[in-house]
Design a protein around this nucleic acid. Structure first.
Lengths: 324, 324
DNA sequence: CTGTTAGCGCTTTCAA
DNA sequence: TTGAAAGCGCTAACAG
């Protein structure tokens, strides 16, 4: 059993290949009668267009590549969902890949994605294989960096005001009268981490407070690491009375452990998390709309496709500090 | 600036097109010297293979389609992450789409996905446009249903023992001495819901208990609906002392509201959720490994590609009932 | 081990 | 408004 091609449809409808093509692509200037014949033939033959062939000939695909850090992390998957929203409006499909924060993996995925000739690339960068991306950009691929910058490349981006929001959150936390702060963050190789940490420290310094070296953990990458880290902090002779969690993984680990032990340790976090407002402990959150972040990124992508010459845009997503 | 093609590479390396093709595809039987020349030329020209062209000629792509219900729901995104794990091992990319549980959207996405000529399709079905899927299957596309069956089609599938696990969970909950049970679930159009509800009811019936009509809500689809529902239940003159939540959305809403009000209402849920074990209320969960579910589904897909003739497999993912 | 030829399914270009 | 011819970049089939 062979798959019907456009030629089959054209033959069945007794029109030329080109006319069939016009009908399938919704070109208006086709005689209604021919149009109906083509549509009927397509239906009879269960014709399915072959986008790959169209892409090859026309040079433009209907796909967008997306390389995110961790598909199983709700932050990134919400961003991906938002991007898919906008891509769908543009009749585009999204190839979603998870780099797991591994540079080699990211490079491999980028090669595979570019081999599909996507119209654009949305990426939460890990290691930024610059020449690869640069080459594609030169050939018309629109690239948008999400959450972190693509170091060394001048591309559109969406991100948070990591420094400012963290500083503001810590300011709010200080009103709770806490003074033994710990910081839980992922590795400094994530560009988002240092400004978040610095914002927190600067807010503390303003009140004459600091963070003891043993109270600052930068290895909260996985759930397990985050859990270990918070356990370590809470086991100190003089444990913290507040923890600033620079990512959602550490926030959840900290909230979980603090709650399980029934301690009065305030949680300050750069993300919302489920049940956050039901904790008896004070909670200060930097809230943000992750799905909208993905939407905004995708919008930037299609805008650049429309106007390749325009200067790069760097969007800062709105954040809101809230106390619970 | 034109993109380098394999012909360009072959010319630059002074070999035939076919030899260049062999080298790029890692065919071993090429003289090392020619191989090196080709690789150097490819590198010099920043050659990037065009998978679409290869797909068209060879008839087999390196893509897998995935249509899930809601990318922004952590359950589905974990499943997607698992599927991507296995697809990656097979050098395949995954086109991930979110049907949002809307039949029309699902049909549209399926058409778009099939237009890419994927090797296979992973789907958490909503409305099942059977003829469309059947036609692709007849043409060699491997289809795996996840979480719900593809009604009327004999395809490989992975799912949970919805009835059994719910029944077991309620059994565990009954040991807590609760006797006013409410049920919170999504619409019955989700095939997973009725057996979960029935399992719960049967466990209750075994002890001579039932669920009052006003205690059974089947509209917990969105966060808002779930919240409304639990608020309604808790506002009853005689509110429940235990709630069975048939999906993760309602579990979170129920836990959140019960916790916020400081009520002693047990939460029984067909899913784990963050901070579940830190609640003062008794919690009984049907735990499952969502990522592994995605992996298993993808494995079934590639196994079928390898052996198209084998009989369909229906995997039941392991679940574990736990009390906190 | 290497090369030649043909053609995948479609859109573009140009002519009628 | 419609059609004929060419060719996108690659691989299959076969020949050398």
């Amino acid at each position: 059993m062979r798959r019907a091609t456009l030629t089959d449809v054209a033959d069945a409808a007794q029109v030329s290949l080109k006319t069939a093509s016009r009908v399938i692509n919704g070109v208006a200037t086709v005689h209604p009668e021919l149009r109906d014949r083509v549509l009927e033939a397509a239906s009879m033959l269960a014709y399915r267009p072959h986008r790959g062939a169209a892409t090859m000939r026309s040079g433009t695909s209907d796909m967008v590549g997306m390389v995110i850090r961790d598909m199983a992390n709700i932050f990134y998957s919400r961003v991906a969902a938002g991007a898919a929203d906008v891509a769908g409006e543009q009749e585009c499909l999204v190839i979603t890949c998870s780099s797991e924060g591994v540079a080699d993996q990211e490079a491999k995925l980028l090669e595979a994605v570019f081999a599909q000739r996507p119209r654009g690339l949305l990426i939460t960068p890990t290691a930024t294989p610059q020449p690869l991306i640069l080459a594609e950009m030169a050939l018309g691929c629109a690239v948008v960096a999400i959450d972190e910058p693509l170091v060394g490349l001048d591309v559109d981006s969406v991100s948070f005001d990591n420094y400012g929001a963290s500083r503001e959150a810590l300011g709010a936390a200080l009103e709770l009268g806490r003074n033994r702060f710990a910081i839980l963050s992922d590795t400094d190789r994530l560009a988002t981490m240092p400004p978040r940490i610095q914002g927190a420290k600067d807010a503390l310094a303003e009140r004459g407070l600091g963070v003891l070296p043993e109270m600052e953990i930068r290895t909260a990458h996985t759930d397990e690491q985050a859990h270990e880290a918070i356990v370590g902090l809470l086991s100190l002779a003089e444990p913290p009375d507040a923890v600033f969690c620079a990512n959602n993984i550490s926030a959840l680990a900290a909230a979980s452990e603090v709650r399980a032990r029934g301690l009065d340790v305030a949680i300050v976090a750069f993300d919302n998390f489920p049940l956050s407002h039901t904790l008896p402990q004070p909670v200060v959150l930097v809230e943000h709309d992750d799905r909208e972040m993905g939407r905004a990124a995708a919008r930037l992508l299609f805008e650049r496709l429309t106007d390749p010459g325009r200067e790069t845009h760097h969007l800062t997503m709105r954040t809101q500090v809230r106390r619970y």
